[in-house]
Design a binder for these strands. Structure first.
Lengths: 141, 141
DNA sequence: TATTGTTATACTCTATAACTATA
DNA sequence: TATAGTTATAGAGTATAACAATA
């Protein structure tokens, strides 16, 4: 008979995922600070690289209150990184766009993240990298 | 002849690692907020579960200034989660200990993280979970 | 009535600079 | 001189509550 010491959870993988999150978030937070932006704004820039979004969508995706997003967009707009535009379909809504300056900053920051993670990724055999990424994405959804 | 479009970096795995970090950090930040603590304090509690640490060590590991850690420990101490003790070997130093209350809170929070990540981990075939954790740890160091 | 976004408010988090005590 | 920790200060990030405009 085989005992099952861990009925439901997988503590080892959970610990590793938490560890991964701390390392990656730490690197990104530090890089963001070097460019005088917060981690939250970095995430907003990343989201807006692909699609224009409404305030409420941004807040929901990043996980902050709308009032928080409102202030964050205020400051980013003053710095020329984002721009508000009216939504022709709903006059209550505001569409937030990334400016060319914001896009350039996003490219710099995410490029720097790639460069800093490269030595870590190099520890995984080249033939396993795609598989590792695929397994992680499967886990995330 | 084969072209190499990505000379040095591995953008796919970088993107996935960033995605992982956002998901896990988001869950942990939300859980922490439910218990009225910050993500930074959760990390401190996690570190102190294993070893007593000096203020400077804590600040360095978490990636904040010592003055920030000083205030954070102040508030956690007032709440009975941490305790300062003098260091007999160096009278400049302060050793920070986790209290039983702090330890109980850490157990609750990390347990809740395990429970919330369990459905995600379930998407990875059981036979691959240990391997995935090992590959990630290899990457992290 | 419900939703979108903003503002006012209050508190935490954060770093910088200046300081004390100790090494 | 250098290091450990604290305090004072200022600014960003955050949520809650109340609000106006629109659906």
């Amino acid at each position: 008979m085989t005992r099952e010491p861990e009925p439901a959870s997988e503590p080892d993988l959970v610990d590793t995922l938490a560890h991964t999150a701390f390392v990656v978030t730490g690197a990104l937070t530090r890089i963001a600070a070097e460019h005088d932006v917060s981690l939250t704004l970095v995430r907003v820039l990343g989201i807006l690289r692909d699609h224009r979004r409404r305030m409420a969508e941004l807040a929901e995706r990043v996980g902050v209150d709308r009032s928080t997003m409102s202030g964050l967009v205020d400051r980013a707009e003053q710095r020329g990184l984002l721009a508000r535009h009216p939504d022709p379909d709903d006059r209550r809504s505001v569409r937030v766009d990334i400016t060319p300056e914001g896009r350039a900053l996003a490219v710099r920051i995410y490029g720097q993240l790639s460069a800093e993670l490269a030595p870590l990724i190099a520890r995984v055999p080249e033939g396993r990298r795609a598989g590792l990424a695929a397994e992680l994405e499967q886990l995330l959804d």
